[in-house]
Design a protein around this nucleic acid. Structure first.
Lengths: 194, 194
DNA sequence: CCGCTATTAGCACTTGGTACTAATACGAGT
DNA sequence: ACTCGTATTAGTACCAAGTGCTAATAGCGG
């Protein structure tokens, strides 16, 4: 025995975790045992074969991508919208949105939800944010659901400007308030969906 | 011919792009041609086989993950920092950061870079943003590099507050200005790196 | 009807395995 | 020394999803 079985299996687990793209043959060379031994080890440890491992990685990231594509276009999910008037979106704070140390959501996620909502509520092919004032009233932590409500408070068609106020809350408590001065690129092109 | 070759090959490309996990056999059923035809098509279009496709996706995401872990903690790359004084970060605007329609960077990315930099420049284990005022002066497009400079303009240790001004520019032209009122959670714990 | 492209079929071979059987090695216990 | 039991190795058949190659056939244009 080159080294005890248990030890080898631990090292094997490790090796595969750090590089899922390794074949049984390569592992057999690495640990100086036969390919069959590697396969028995994998079975005992319930580690799937190379192709399955790769596939899992691929599927995971693929799904992530597919998910992030439409969601990221409007940060948070819009659940109600009345163009040029108001809109509501929800955003579930997940572990990846918070600071590792204290689990508090990073400010830019709250901003992103609010700003995207402000853009969405503008009935325009393309609206840009010009100015903005933000207040972060209460920290939000992972697991909480932020409800953002946007309201168009003023319009100034001559100057192609509109003002949107967004109030975000978690369970009735206001956590964030933002006001956005928006610039609309087109004059008043109605019915331009999407 | 069920439908002209060119048309089928276009559809094939599309089909594989939207679902890289499809086998030749499944494609053969989808387009009602033989497996061999699918293979000839793939060769002409230089589309690799299923396993290679999956592997590419996996490798890509695998590398992304490894890369993104440390980078994502601070949005944009910090190239210079003097704690409690000032900091500079750069952020390369890529296609995924812009609106599809006009290629203009979404506001929350500019905010994220600036806000993260404001957090980073605070010499504190954990700083939170309390208030913020933003001006988006010029649109930024994909391919441009944003340089953000943060400056701590005022400190108020009694109230655990500090004020940070961030100016972002693209090739000397100012594109964004943000002021951040930050709350420091710890009193004055020195030497607490990272 | 000829020629040409497109399509289909078939076979050998490749990778990286699974599933299973059989042989062998080694070490501990008696 | 013999035996039991685990560990390891070898070998075979088989699978999926291909590549690479040759050959046959279909369909159409001129």
């Amino acid at each position: 025995m080159r080294r005890p079985k248990k030890e080898r299996q631990q090292a094997l687990k490790n090796s595969i975790r750090t590089n899922p793209f390794v074949t049984d043959e390569e592992l057999s060379a690495e640990f100086d045992v036969s390919v069959q031994t590697i396969r028995l080890d994998r079975m005992e440890l319930a580690i799937p074969e190379l192709r399955e491992r790769i596939k899992h990685v691929a599927v995971r990231t693929y799904e992530d991508e597919v998910k992030s594509l439409p969601i990221d276009e409007v940060f948070g999910e819009i659940i109600d919208i009345e163009l040029d008037e108001r809109a509501i979106s929800i955003f579930d704070v997940k572990p990846e949105h918070v600071f590792q140390r204290n689990k508090i959501a990073r400010g830019h996620h709250l901003f992103a939800q609010a700003n995207s909502l402000a853009v969405a509520v503008m009935n325009d092919e393309l609206a840009l944010t010009v100015k903005s004032e933000l207040q972060f009233l209460r920290p939000v932590t992972a697991g909480q659901r932020i409800v953002a409500k946007a309201q168009v408070v003023e319009r100034n068609p001559e100057k192609n400007r509109a003002y949107v106020k967004v109030v975000s809350s978690v369970e009735q408590a206001t956590v964030f308030i933002g006001t956005f001065e928006m610039y609309r690129m087109t004059e008043q092109s109605e019915g331009e969906g999407q």
